[in-house]
Every structure is written in C-alpha cells, then in structure tokens.
Computed example of a mutant assay.
Amino acid sequence: MKIYQFSQEVGKKISHYNSNFIMSRITQTEKVTRIGCMYLEGNGIIGYHQATVPQLLLILSGEGTVRGEQEEYVKVKPGDAVFWEKDEWHETKTEQGLTAIVIESEELNPSMFMPIYD
C-alpha cells in the first residue's frame, strides 16, 4: 500500500487560455479503466479483500482508515490517494463517513503524477 497526495497544495497553477485554477494530475491510462464513486456512511466499511486489478482510492470528503496486508491502519483524509497493487489484500473503514473515487486499471502508475505522502 502506498499513499499519495492530490490536494490543492501539490497541484500546478494553470493559466493557459486565460485560465486561473489549480490542477492535480492523478493518472493516465491507455487500457480499460473503471472509475466509480463510493459513499460510505458512518461506520461504513469496504471489507478486507484482494484487489483484482491495481486500485487507486481518492479521498474526496470525510476521513477514515485504510490498511494493506499488515494489520496497521493509516488515517486518510481529503486529498489522499491510496494505491493497492493487484492481489494485495486491503480494507477501508470510516467512523464519520467518507466519499471517494476509485480508479481500477491494469496499468495504473500514480507515481507518474502525484507525490508520495510524507
């Protein structure tokens, strides 16, 4: 399990075409990619299971904890991106609720665009 950041603080200011915004790039793929949004209510859980393909979980709101194959949970918050390799066991839990985008693809490489969390 690796945790990256896509928060505003790590984004790049865009000014082309008279624009004024910050863009945090996340990933790029050429193969089939599935993207979904997960809504976990209070005491919600994405149970402990193996990733069938590499997965990237982007925390949009709320907070929770995640773990990989180790039993140690790591706190996540908006702007964090959690990456699990194919076949890696993992789990996500929240007490207060959490909303996240999940990206699944055979060719995810989040380190291409996002800094790893310190």
Rank of each mutant, 00 (worst) to 15 (best):
I35P: 00
A51Q: 11
Y39I: 08
T52D: 13
K31T: 09
G44D: 05
G36V: 05
I45M: 10
Y48D: 11
L56N: 10
K31S: 09
N43G: 04
C37T: 14
I35D: 01
G42S: 13
K31L: 05
A51D: 07
V32I: 03
E30I: 13
V53G: 01
Q55G: 13
V66A: 08
L57Q: 00
P54A: 04
R34F: 14
V32K: 04
G62E: 01
K31Y: 03
I35H: 00
G64W: 05
Q50F: 07
V66Y: 03
R34W: 06
G47P: 07
L60D: 01
G42F: 07
E63H: 10
Q55A: 15
V32A: 01
Q28M: 04
E41S: 10
I45K: 14
G64M: 04
E30S: 08
V32P: 01
Y48K: 08
V66N: 02
G64E: 02
R34P: 02
L60V: 10
M38R: 08
E63W: 09
P54T: 10
T65C: 03
Q28S: 13
L58P: 15
R67L: 09
G47T: 13
L58S: 06
V53C: 03
S61R: 15
V53L: 09
G64D: 04
E30Q: 11
I46R: 10
N43Y: 15
T29F: 01
P54W: 10
G36R: 00
Y39H: 15
Q55W: 09
L58F: 12
G68V: 06
Y48L: 06
Y39V: 12
E41P: 02
L40E: 15
G42H: 12
T65N: 07
Q50N: 09
T33G: 00
H49R: 09
A51S: 15
Y39M: 07
T65R: 08
G42A: 14
N43C: 08
L57V: 10
Y39E: 08
T65Q: 07
G62P: 03
E41N: 04
G44M: 04
G62A: 03
E63D: 11
I59Y: 02
N43E: 11
I59E: 00
P54F: 07
G68I: 11
R34L: 14
E63T: 08
Q55F: 03
S61H: 14
L40W: 14
G62R: 06
L56P: 10
R67N: 09
V53T: 12
T29P: 05
Q55P: 06
P54H: 06
T29I: 01
I45L: 07
R34Y: 13
Y39D: 09
I45H: 02
T33E: 00
P54K: 06
T52E: 13
G44T: 10
P54S: 05
E63R: 11
V32L: 02
H49K: 13
E41T: 12
P54M: 05
Y39F: 14
G42K: 15
T33V: 05
L40R: 05
Q55C: 11
G62M: 02
I45D: 05
C37H: 12
I35V: 15
T29H: 00
I59T: 05
T65A: 07
I35N: 00
T29M: 01
G36W: 03
